[in-house]
Design a protein around this nucleic acid. Structure first.
Lengths: 206, 206
DNA sequence: GTCTATACCTGGATAGAC
DNA sequence: GTCTATCCAGGTATAGAC
């Protein structure tokens, strides 16, 4: 979710993964060719196969890199922020912090998962772990908040709303909308955290 | 959003558009080749170019077809359902009605717009009209509901939530989640329609 | 209107020199 | 570790017969 530099004094393998990560995000996996990555890393196309056996192997490495990057981020938040409500707020604020990229390219997690689903790609389950990672972390925060009855539903709700905002903000390139929705999610969370009771009466199913 | 048959007694051009529509949805635009469409329509690859000058032209035709199909659907709802709240409910229920397809392939509108954004494809603005169509229609319903202050924000909110649910339900193939979120959107709408007042106090920005 | 044949290109992947 | 040269599959698009 962060724009990266490409320091030349890094192992070539890592530079390939970084460049691929960035290009897969901006142009999509399938639409990115070896020629594109090679140009970004400034190596020859043939050189790839010293580091990876196939394009799919690069994809795998990219997903793993994204996973560990997100894990570190969440761990950092856990130490920096003590109140679970603050941590959830920080999660929601990803939308604001990365709004420039999101407006241009959408959510890196959501768009990758959608693309791999259409491609029926073998790495799909790996990519879905990115969602699972956030889901588990959010669930823990809601549990800590005292909402023990349905922390998972709340986690999924937050994931879905942020996904929707990212998709729509990207399609319509509407930053105002993005900011407004972030505010509303904050309000929603405030109401939830202030009064840790199960929200308004649920209609019966049918 | 509806699975279509491929009646042989239809003009070939229309059959191409239908088959392409379906394949673009299930596999994505870029990942679908002429060979795939040709197999579905049972014509030869060369024959395409009698009906369309390029793949992009097929895409354009597919988007136009989707646009008019959705327009008709909304017009139908307008005559069938008199209460604007019922119309909005029907919109939300697209998720339930098409859940099988959505779980497998996501939202046809959202996934197409995301893909075209990554491809920097010329047809992107055309595809975005699909969102604009729903947005305008929803805005009108919210206005009719008596929520004249921010009908557009509400329309966008509904669009975003349905998008998010579709994306996440697709990634995690979670039908229970989809159904639960639909129920919560119904509850949300009920609260809104019952008390047509601007919702709870908004926090100040900063 | 539909077909076959084919041109042309791009993209992933391999071989082997340095 | 990196390069050049090359192969091959698959994709879009064209030409021209039927």
């Amino acid at each position: 979710m962060v724009t990266k530099a490409l320091p030349k004094d890094q192992p070539t393998r890592d530079r390939i993964v970084q460049a691929a990560d960035d290009l897969f995000y901006r142009r999509g996996f399938e639409h990115t060719s070896f020629a594109d990555i090679a140009a970004a890393v400034q190596i020859s196309r043939g050189n790839f196969y010293y580091h990876f056996r196939s394009k799919d192997e690069i994809l795998s490495a990219v997903i793993q890199a994204r996973l560990s990057e997100r894990e570190e981020m969440l761990a950092r938040w856990d130490t920096e922020l003590k109140a679970p409500a603050d941590r959830i707020r920080r999660f929601i604020d990803i939308l604001t912090r990365n709004r420039a990229l999101i407006l241009q390219h959408g959510c890196p997690v959501g768009t990758l998962c959608s693309e791999l689903a259409k491609l029926s790609h073998a790495a799909r389950p790996e990519a879905d772990e990115l969602f699972a990672l956030f889901r588990t972390w959010l669930r823990r925060q809601f549990t800590l908040l005292g909402l023990r009855e349905k922390p998972d539903a709340l986690a999924m709700h937050v994931l879905a709303r942020t996904q929707g905002v990212a998709t729509l903000a990207n399609a319509l390139r509407d930053e105002t909308f993005l900011q407004r929705e972030v505010r509303e999610m904050h309000d929603w969370l405030d109401a939830l955290a202030t009064c840790p009771m199960p929200p308004p009466p649920r209609r019966k199913v049918h």
